[in-house]
Computed example of a mutant assay.
Amino acid sequence: MAKPFPEVRVDLYALDDGRIYFGEMTFTSLGGFMNFYTPEYLLLMGEKCDISNC
């Protein structure tokens, strides 16, 4: 699931009966709460990620 993306967290849940469920895909570090980066820096870094052909 994560292979085509430069950064993503995939949440999977394993049940006691062996079934695995997909939860979500998160495309930002720390759930988007990166208050130590300026908005300008985040835009600059985002421009370096090309996911248009994923």
Rank of each mutant, 00 (worst) to 15 (best):
Y21K: 12
D11L: 04
A14S: 09
T38P: 00
Y41Q: 09
I51F: 01
D11R: 08
I20G: 02
V8R: 04
S29V: 10
D17A: 02
F27A: 08
M1R: 07
T26F: 00
L15T: 11
C54R: 08
F33W: 06
M25R: 06
T28E: 14
D17H: 03
G31V: 11
D17S: 03
I20W: 05
P6Q: 08
D16T: 11
G32K: 02
D16W: 09
T28V: 05
K3C: 10
G32H: 03
G18L: 06
Y21R: 09
N35S: 12
A2E: 13
G23Y: 03
F27V: 12
P6S: 10
V10F: 00
T28K: 06
Y13M: 13
E7R: 09
E7D: 13
F33A: 11
T26L: 02
M45C: 06
M34S: 15
P39A: 03
R9L: 03
I51Y: 02
P39T: 10
L44T: 10
L43V: 14
K3Q: 14
D50Q: 08
V10T: 13
S29P: 01
N53V: 06
K3L: 14
N35I: 06
M45H: 05
A2G: 15
M34Y: 01
G32A: 08
F33E: 12
C49L: 12
G31N: 12
T38S: 15
P4R: 07
R9P: 00
M25W: 00
N35F: 04
Y13R: 14
G23C: 05
L44V: 07
L44H: 09
C54G: 00
P6W: 05
G46N: 15
G32E: 04
G32D: 04
Y37A: 05
T28G: 02
F27R: 10
D16V: 07
A2T: 14
A2C: 09
F5W: 14
F5Y: 15
D17Y: 08
L15S: 10
L12N: 07
V10S: 08
G23P: 09
G31K: 06
F22G: 11
P4W: 07
T28D: 06
D11Y: 02
D17C: 03
L15E: 15
L30C: 10
M34E: 15
F27L: 14
K48N: 11
F27M: 11
P4H: 07
R19G: 05
E47L: 12
M25N: 04
D17N: 15
D17E: 11
F22V: 13
L43P: 01
F5M: 13
D16L: 06
A14R: 14
L42V: 15
G23E: 04
I20Y: 01
Y41P: 00
D11C: 05
C49I: 13
E7F: 14
F22C: 09
K48F: 06
S29M: 04
D16F: 02
G31R: 05
L44M: 08
N35P: 00
P4A: 05
F22Q: 12
Y37K: 10
L30Q: 11
E24P: 01
M1P: 04
S29K: 11
D50G: 03
